[in-house]
Simulated assay, not measured.
Amino acid sequence: MGADGKLYTLAEVAEHNHSKDCWLVIHGKVYDVTKFLEDHPGGDDVLLSATGKDATDDFEDVGHSSSAKAMMEEFYVGNIDSSTIPTKVKYTAPKQPHYNQDKTSEFIIKLLQFLVPLLILGLAVGIRFYTKSASA
């Protein structure tokens, strides 16, 4: 296609998103990979799913060979205007209330609050039956 060095916006590149016309953005460069779709070892779906965004991370995650990277130059059509690519938003977890890691002591207190009155009641009933049966 030739290295004319034209500057494209992401919106312009995103218009080329089907099997008859497929462009990708990788490392700030725009590539027309339409002719390569059938020959791509990962299948054409992989390339088609990478249209309309910066596909650099997808490209690098696969670990392409140096010959594959050299082959890309024949598909180069220009550069991407980086100001048109949305910046990645860092995930921030929502604020949560403080977590008390020592729940054991709280559990023991609640358990004792339940068991101690039962123990006292049982002891009182037991003493009453014992004194009744001892006097009879």
Rank of each mutant, 00 (worst) to 15 (best):
M1Y: 06
M1V: 09
D4G: 14
G5I: 05
G5K: 09
Y8L: 03
A11C: 03
E12S: 09
E12L: 06
V13T: 07
V13A: 07
A14G: 13
E15D: 04
E15R: 08
H18L: 02
K20E: 10
K20H: 07
W23E: 02
H27A: 14
H27Y: 05
G28I: 13
V30G: 08
V30I: 10
K35I: 07
E38I: 08
E38A: 14
D39I: 12
P41H: 07
G42T: 13
G42V: 05
D44C: 12
D45Q: 10
D45P: 02
V46E: 01
L48W: 00
S49H: 00
A50R: 00
A50G: 04
T51L: 02
T51F: 01
T51A: 09
G52L: 03
G52P: 10
D54I: 01
D54F: 01
D54H: 07
A55F: 00
D57W: 01
D58I: 01
E60N: 13
V62G: 10
S65K: 05
S65Y: 10
S66H: 05
S66K: 14
S67W: 05
A68I: 11
E73V: 09
E74P: 09
N79C: 06
I80G: 07
D81S: 03
S83E: 10
S83C: 06
I85Y: 05
P86H: 09
T87W: 01
K88F: 00
K90R: 13
T92K: 10
K95V: 11
P97K: 13
P97I: 06
Y99T: 12
K103R: 14
K103P: 07
K103H: 13
E106S: 10
E106Q: 10
F107N: 02
F107P: 02
I108M: 03
I109A: 00
L111C: 13
L115T: 13
V116K: 07
P117F: 00
L119I: 14
L119M: 11
L123Q: 08
G126K: 00
F129E: 13
F129N: 03
S133T: 06
S133I: 11
